[in-house]
Simulated scan of single mutants.
Amino acid sequence: MLIVMEHHATQAQIDAVAARIRELGYEPLPIPGANRVAIGVLGNRGYVDEEPFRDLAGIQELIHVTKPYKLASRDFHPEDTVVRIGTVEVAWHRPPVIIAGPCAVESREQTLAAARAVKAAGGRVLRGGAFKPRTSPHSFQGLGEEGLEILAEARAETGLAVVTEVMRIDQIERVAEVADCLQVGARNMQNFDLLRALGEAGRPVLLKRGLSATLEEWLAAAEYIVASGNDQVILCERGIRTFERALRNTLDLGVVPWLRQVTHLPVIVDPSHALGRRDLVPPLARAAWAVGACGIMVEVHPDPARALSDGPQSMDPEGFAALCAELDRLGALLDAAAP
């Protein structure tokens, strides 16, 4: 439930409503607004009866919120959340951010070369998997601890912030020593124990959409992190599995403007994993820019033909630099056309 107070409600009236919420065994969440205060009711597992609030002064409206993602919704948090990855800000009302790098950390030379290319082209955050979940147990699984050390060196040399995936709760502390942002992969989107632990990790979280997840399931997964004390969550659309098999996945760009309406959490797009083909990454990256995404995440490898993971979808440094230049031009056009 969301309790909207009158614009002239006194602090004593607001406190009385919060006290009544606690008496009922729930938790009040004051939500200050420009003209009035609203109070969210948290902790209920079903319908909240309106009757206990009928005799309280200063209430304008009682709104029943049935979404399973209250804290991630604009109902409870109308203002955009700014997620800070190091010094990089990701938010709906900020310029879009480019996150790029290899799918997997394969070697020191490969990762440093990719990081230099990302930096030179205008990327702000380096991505790279030290721990890699793969469909086949025989595929390259990443370098683990050695990969984290290489990412730390790349950050020290280039100044780029780092995002890398964490797969298990027992990895969080070690990965957080290196990474500025902890990624949850599509396969772990509903690993609820991991999500709760990440809510207490003290690092921003990049939450990828599950392979066949609905938008409600995705936002509910984000709710686990936010409800555990961490509102620094970025949602990443990376395509979903549908009946169509011409491409690796179906990239759902329509979620970007829709999510901007319903959640304060920023949303970025990963065209590399959605498509699986590097030649299709630039047009979909431009499309993500155009529909208002808060950023994109692109795979870049110094020698895609020799990549140990996702070579066909990885851009080489030259192609990535050209894409960044295109996005700069597109951004200028969109800014000029904005009302």
Results as ranks from 00 to 15, higher is better:
135 T>A: 13
108 R>S: 05
11 Q>C: 00
101 G>C: 04
238 R>T: 03
288 A>Y: 10
331 G>A: 05
144 G>H: 09
292 G>Y: 12
7 H>R: 15
143 L>S: 01
65 V>G: 01
48 V>S: 06
159 G>W: 09
67 K>F: 13
262 V>A: 01
247 L>M: 14
296 I>S: 10
77 H>L: 02
76 F>P: 07
167 M>T: 05
127 R>N: 08
314 S>A: 14
49 D>H: 10
169 I>M: 02
148 L>R: 09
274 A>E: 07
150 I>T: 07
288 A>S: 14
234 I>Y: 08
216 E>I: 14
180 D>Q: 06
23 E>P: 11
301 H>E: 07
126 L>P: 12
173 E>P: 01
110 Q>I: 08
135 T>C: 03
192 F>R: 11
253 L>T: 07
109 E>G: 11
31 I>M: 07
35 N>G: 03
69 Y>S: 11
50 E>R: 14
137 P>M: 02
220 A>Q: 11
300 V>Q: 06
49 D>E: 15
130 A>D: 06
325 A>C: 03
213 A>E: 10
241 R>T: 12
27 E>N: 01
196 R>P: 00
151 L>V: 00
99 I>T: 02
105 V>E: 03
272 S>P: 11
243 F>S: 05
53 F>R: 09
26 Y>E: 01
22 R>N: 03
288 A>T: 12
149 E>F: 05
197 A>W: 05
114 A>W: 11
325 A>M: 03
242 T>S: 09
126 L>S: 10
153 E>A: 15
228 S>E: 02
257 P>K: 14
255 V>C: 11
13 Q>G: 07
146 E>S: 13
63 I>Q: 14
334 L>T: 07
177 E>Q: 15
259 L>R: 03
93 H>P: 00
149 E>Y: 01
12 A>D: 15
264 H>R: 15
62 L>A: 10
96 P>R: 02
3 I>A: 08
102 P>D: 07
